[in-house]
Design a protein around this nucleic acid. Structure first.
Length: 205
DNA sequence: CATGGGATTGACT
DNA sequence: GTCAATCCCATGC
């Protein structure tokens, strides 16, 4: 059993691309915090041009992070109790980010169990708030850098199996619900909710 | 300053 | 399937 990813963190250029590309390509990469982490299996894209994005109303105090440098962590508090983690994408000045929605638990699983108060693997990181709790990601990490900060995203590891990426509508929003901006690895049980979707990338690796 | 709405989750019918 | 918990932040007066 490995203790940490063998690959380097993704660099700023990875995030400085169209947010849909970043969302798709984050599938299969590894999210880490404090020795705890897993393979990203589900993401959603948000962009200032559509009303479900927090950047839609411009750079308000909360949303200003979204307009910052690509690769910045955007962490915010939702429903009075949940923390959600995003990776800021597109060039600085454009408000866009990728919500990390689910992981396949890989590193520090015993500590995930501790943090979550659940034992089943599929209950540890199968949701955007669950994975933050499992990894200990909190509001303090807002505006930290994913390339070299406490929370990092590593490039796809050679040992990660190949998979197909599928896409469909985003979850839990009330505006722009029709956009197929949710991505996940097909057939993975660690997603927040399986969906009927179309294939965008087959046998990715 | 007062109000209302969530990019969710877990418990329950 | 339904529903409450709980608080930051955006909006409006």
């Amino acid at each position: 059993m490995r203790l940490k990813p063998a690959t380097r963190p993704l660099d700023r250029a990875f995030y400085a691309r169209p947010v849909l590309d970043v969302a798709r390509d984050l599938i299969g990469c590894t999210l880490m915090h404090d020795g705890i982490g897993g393979v990203i299996v589900e993401t959603e894209a948000y962009h200032e041009s559509e009303p479900s994005c927090h950047a839609f109303g411009g750079p308000t105090p909360r949303a200003k992070t979204l307009f910052g440098d690509p690769g910045t962590a955007y962490v915010y508090f939702s429903y009075g109790m949940h923390t959600l983690l995003n990776a800021v994408a597109e060039p600085a000045g454009v408000g866009a980010a990728v919500l990390i929605r689910a992981l396949e638990p890989t590193y520090g699983i015993d500590r995930m169990v501790e943090n979550r108060g659940r034992t089943r693997s599929a209950d540890l990181c199968s949701g955007p708030a669950k994975l933050c709790q499992a990894l200990g990601v909190s509001l303090e990490h807002n505006e930290s850098q994913l390339q070299n900060g406490p929370v990092r995203v590593h490039a796809r590891e050679p040992t990660t199996r190949s998979f197909t990426v599928v896409t469909g509508p985003r979850i839990g929003i009330s505006k722009a619900v029709e956009l197929p901006w949710r991505f996940h690895a097909e057939g993975v049980e660690h997603v927040s909710r399986p969906i009927r979707t179309r294939v965008v990338s087959r046998d990715k690796r």
